[in-house]
Design a protein around this nucleic acid. Structure first.
Length: 710
RNA sequence: AGCACCGUAGAGUAGCGGUUAACUCGUUGGGCUCAUAACCCAAAGAUCGGCAGGUUCGAAUCCGCCCGGUGCUACCA
């Protein structure tokens, strides 16, 4: 059977494309893991689609609802809506600086999301996919709040651990319901009185939708393996009804009479943000209401969603479930691109432990493109990847600065020095030029093929390969020599290199937009125009001749010094600090555990046995040990020597004469040791019959000395 | 505990059924000197976590078991 090639290329035949990235939660500044886990790749991909001339919009925004937002607002002593507005501005500004080029960056607390969410709920209700159940919920009287499971601690009914959380006891790992806890308390106010109240909640009937969801999932076998296997896992286990409302004040109201104290659960309203934000975009930015339906309710639109792996079930099962069940004509995702985790110096990024780098700090340290390039180069597409300061330094210094930055510098400097700042027109195309053209063609093929498959590491690598080819070209043409004895050829080299840089700028724009602008500017273009250039322009090798270029201002990049990296490691923590020690300890423990286990179950590994080398040996001579009662001194032929001495504790059982000439088994690689003054080089094997007799092990056929025993 | 994903040269990553396992850095040797001590060439270095396991003509690649790492387990988002 031929394996079906997984490709998203067919998506690109569609008229319109919506790209979304997981909505960052409003609560605080995101770290680099969040950035590479969805926001950045979505941006790069959208920019790529625009480069190849697609009609595409990139929609994202903050996810505002939920208890953590309420609590953060409380801590900041601000009303929730005000808090969210402020944090929205903070996040938005950071993303702008990172060059994330959203067509619209909205928020789930916007009135349009209320409308869209309520509309979807009512449709689900009408279509019979909503049910109502009563459940018991803990209520914190002093705080005037119902408590989500994880905001409750108390004593575990099973193991009496007094810090058990409402959903699970960490001590005995049993799954709990908050009502089971003895003496439950609110995490945010331990003194508050707790009551149990009966509350009604709405549930979405996912079991009823299971078949339709399954059918939809199975029509997308082109999804990445991880995405597909997660979706299938949920379906295989069978979907359950899922509560879609919460007893909170901050959220979207349930549009039915008599449910004033209920709002929709964030997981129900947040994904609808993709839809509602597009609505806002169409109506307020584009001032064209028809655009909304054109994008969201058209078979010729494809929806491509980016997210971290933790978000996959909600984008492949639950949210599509509500869209399918509501039957309002909204399209479901064509492609769900998920990312594994980015780790920080071998450990986890952690907000609470302040471990890792946050997006705001990152921008204070280095320009956005440094981060964009490095993160995309190590994008956790198939497996977790590790952010390492050494790696970051290495990539910035070598890839960006040495390969690309210096190439531009060579070319520009040469142009100013030898051609008055005018890019020479290329007159003759020789073999070396043709080689470079081919290198660009190869780069283009790989770049487009991999981008079309929504990959990131690969197009970046394809481009880097072309930087190398360009340097190689320049190096081999030796214009610094040619300028003396063959000036025309030298100028052709410079002209050709300038064109290569122009191609690089265009292709680099989705990945590192700010850098591309700088290169374009250095070549005498208006910087921003690089973003309006179509990919078909890339292979045009004859457009720069005669163009005047500006004075060279500054290098594209600057190197990061070892000292600097050392400081950063100290400031942010790195493997070389605590982590290593911790890990060493952990490894030792594990090793000890392993050995214990072996001892306990009485087995050794094969490897352990393999360490012992047994061979046959022929007894040539036997004498009594002069200083020992029980030892005989054997002289053996071990196949290599005929004077090997081995002491054996068998004097009580054998006469020296009856042993001579026998072939026995000895341990060959036992460390030699003196026994009562005589060096014994090995050990003869025998088994105990009883206390008074033993039997020497011997081969059952006549054998040579020195044969290995297995 | 269950499930999912992962385990490839010193480091970070590709490859995921087929000739010499690829790339970047690092290491060693050489070339060049226009350029930011940058650039170019070459070499060494991996029996692809383990199996005295299975499928196959053939496995890093598929299946099974074991070991190790990480994550998820539906009311944190």
């Amino acid at each position: 059977m031929t394996k079906q090639k997984k490709s998203s290329t067919k998506i690109l035949e569609e008229e319109r494309i919506i790209v979304t990235s997981a909505l960052p939660y409003i609560n605080g500044v995101k770290h680099l893991g969040n950035l590479i886990g969805s926001l950045l790749p979505a941006d790069v991909y959208t920019r790529y689609l625009k480069l190849i001339g697609k009609d595409v919009i990139y929609i994202c925004g903050t996810d505002d609802h939920g208890t953590p937002a309420e609590i953060s607002a409380l801590e900041a002593k601000k009303p929730v809506d005000k808090y969210c507005n402020e944090m929205y501005e903070v996040q938005k500004e950071i993303y702008d600086k990172f060059g994330l080029n959203f067509d619209y960056f909205g928020k789930t607390s916007h009135k349009d999301n209320h409308k869209v969410t309520q509309e979807i709920f009512l449709a689900l209700h009408k279509n019979g996919y909503i049910s109502e159940k009563t459940s018991e919920q803990l209520y914190s009287v002093d705080e005037d709040r119902y408590l989500p499971d994880r905001y409750v601690i108390g004593t575990c009914p099973k193991c009496d651990y007094d810090q058990a959380r409402g959903d699970q006891c960490e001590a005995c790992t049993s799954l709990l319901s908050p009502i089971e806890l003895k003496s439950p308390k609110s995490i945010t106010n331990e003194n508050s009185k707790i009551e149990i109240k009966k509350v009604k909640h709405f549930y979405i009937n996912l079991p009823k939708l299971q078949n339709k969801i399954e059918e939809w999932v199975e029509s997308h076998t082109e999804w990445p393996n991880t995405t597909l296997s997660i979706a299938r896992k949920w379906l295989k286990e069978g979907l359950r009804e899922r509560a879609i409302t919460r007893n909170l004040k901050w959220g979207i109201d349930v549009p039915l009479e008599g449910y004033d104290d209920l709002v929709f659960y964030v997981w129900f309203d947040a994904p609808n943000g993709y839809i509602s934000m597009t609505k806002t975009w169409a109506e307020t930015i584009k001032k064209d209401k028809s655009l909304f339906d054109k994008y969201w309710k058209s078979d010729s639109t494809k929806l491509i969603q980016f997210m971290g792996i933790d978000n996959v079930p909600f984008h492949t099962v639950t949210w599509p479930g509500s869209l399918i069940g509501s039957d309002l004509g909204y399209i479901a995702a064509s492609s769900v691109k998920s990312f594994q985790w980015l780790t920080y110096e071998k450990g986890k990024f952690s907000t609470s432990q302040n471990r890792g780098i946050f997006t705001d700090t990152a921008l204070e340290l280095f320009p956005a493109d440094y981060w964009r390039y490095y993160l995309l180069l190590i994008a956790p597409e198939r497996q977790d990847t590790d952010f390492l300061w050494d790696g970051f330094q290495n990539v910035v210094n070598n890839d960006l600065n040495n390969l690309l930055g210096n190439l531009l510098n060579r070319c520009i400097t040469f142009t100013h020095r030898h051609n008055n700042g005018i890019i020479p027109k290329v007159k003759a195309i020789g073999d070396k030029e043709k080689e470079l053209y081919i290198a660009l063609d190869e780069c283009l093929v790989e770049y487009q093929a991999t981008f079309n498959d929504i990959e990131f590491q690969k197009p970046v690598r394809a481009l880097r390969k072309f930087w190398q080819a360009s340097n190689k070209y320049f190096q081999e043409k030796q214009p610094w020599k040619a300028i003396i004895d063959n000036p025309d050829d030298a100028l052709d080299t410079i002209g050709t290199t300038a064109h290569a840089l122009r191609s690089i700028a265009i292709l680099f724009a989705p990945i590192a937009p700010f850098t591309s602008e700088k290169i374009y500017e250095a070549l005498g273009y208006k910087s921003k125009s690089v973003h309006r250039t179509n990919i078909s322009q890339v292979v045009n090798w004859n457009v720069l001749g005669g163009r005047e270029i500006p004075e060279f201002k500054s290098n594209l990049f600057s190197k990061i010094k070892d000292k600097e990296i050392k400081k950063l490691k100290e400031r942010f923590g790195s493997v070389e600090s605590k982590q290593v020690k911790k890990k060493e300890k952990k490894d030792k423990k594990k090793e000890a555990k392993k050995i214990k286990k072996q001892e306990k179950d009485g087995y050794i590994q094969y490897d352990d046995f393999a360490k012992i080398k047994l061979i046959t040996a022929k007894i040539l001579n036997v004498e009594e040990h002069p200083k020992a009662d029980k030892l005989l001194v054997l002289t053996l032929d071990d196949g290599k020597r005929k004077d090997r001495t081995v002491c054996a504790g068998i004097k009580e059982f054998y006469n020296p004469d009856e042993l001579k000439g026998r072939t026995v088994i000895i341990v060959d690689n036992l460390k030699p040791r003196k026994l009562r003054g005589i060096m014994s080089e090995g050990m003869v094997l025998a088994c105990d019959i009883d206390e008074k007799s033993i039997a020497l092990l011997q081969p059952d056929k006549k054998t040579d000395a020195g044969l290995e025993v297995h």
